[in-house]
Design a binder for these strands. Structure first.
Ligand SMILES: [Mn+2]
Ligand SMILES: [Mn+2]
Ligand SMILES: [Zn+2]
Ligand SMILES: [Zn+2]
Lengths: 156, 156
DNA sequence: GTTCTGTTGAGAATAGGTCTCAATAAGCCG
DNA sequence: CGGCTTATTGAGACCTATTCTCAACAGAAC
């Protein structure tokens, strides 16, 4: 009654494509599935090197691409220059609020949005494979800080 | 009973910031407001040069940023490497479907999504300034082409 | 016209990701 | 195990969209 783990999904996916389960590939899998939240490629690279895992940047990028193709990792730009990666658990999906002042990212789940998205795609003849919804604005903290500063500068 | 044009909004915005209405700035404004749909910075640059308007790349980028800050231009990545810009008419807002095979972009308007977005932002204490919703998938044409090819290769 | 200072142009710099290719090592077979 | 095929790796070159630098220029105010 065990259900298939992400690791099993990955190994099958690699085999189905005629690929090989190299040491680097599997270590990168473990690394990203042990991380919480969003990571960029360089952080994964450095974190693996720090642990004494020898791996090259190119290999990190190549295997991240593989994980994305496989559907186990999501790659997206969240307001910044570089791509961020996060592992995905099948059947779950969330979106992001991004503070344009401090770059803080808040995740949320909205079934309503997901339903609307499927509907819209269908209405335009699209077979939807994924979506990205990013709402950017100012978070509570930054809004507070901004108004304090405005008040202070107006005093002087 | 004239309502303010985008050009007027821009000029006021520039003045309010202590900026100047330079020839290059105003020509870029005209250029992007004469273009339809999405353009990248380099296309604007080349299109202006072609018309004999002398302008540098740096100036194009700097003034696009100004237009974005001013709220008259939207900058986003639509599946590709470079940013795309489009002029915005106040009060309107649309989102995008992107075909991951042919990069075709289809625009749509969904009041439901807009309302949900505002609600979600508020629920998390965000003051929403803008949003991006991108649904990527396979368009009708590409879906058709793909299934034809699959059939053909299975025959052989 | 003079002055002050925001803006421009040309090109260098940056950054993040991609490509190259010789060396390595999975996976398979006997 | 030992050899064979070929996918993958590592190191660094390469790419390219965007940002930065700084001296020359030109709006705007008076
Ligand atoms: Mn997330
Ligand atoms: Mn659009
Ligand atoms: Zn913030
Ligand atoms: Zn298509």
């Amino acid at each position: 009654m065990e259900h298939t783990t992400e690791r099993e999904i990955f190994e099958r996916y690699v085999h189905r494509r005629g690929g090989r389960l190299t040491a680097e590939r599997l270590r990168l899998f473990d690394e990203i599935f042990n991380q919480h939240g969003h990571v960029d490629a360089d952080r994964l690279y450095r974190s693996m090197r720090r642990q004494g895992r020898k791996i090259s940047r190119a290999t990190v990028y190549r295997n991240l691409e593989l994980l994305v193709d496989c559907g186990l990792v999501r790659r997206q730009r969240l307001g910044q220059r570089r791509y961020l990666y996060e592992h995905v658990h099948p059947g779950q999906s969330h979106d992001h609020l991004i503070c344009r002042m401090c770059d803080r990212v808040v995740e949320f789940v909205s079934p309503g949005i997901s339903a609307l998205q499927r509907e819209l795609a269908r209405a335009h003849g699209f077979d939807p494979t994924e979506h990205t919804l990013q709402i950017s604005g100012i978070c509570l903290d930054c809004a507070g800080r901004a108004s304090t500063e405005t008040a202070a500068s107006e005093e002087s």
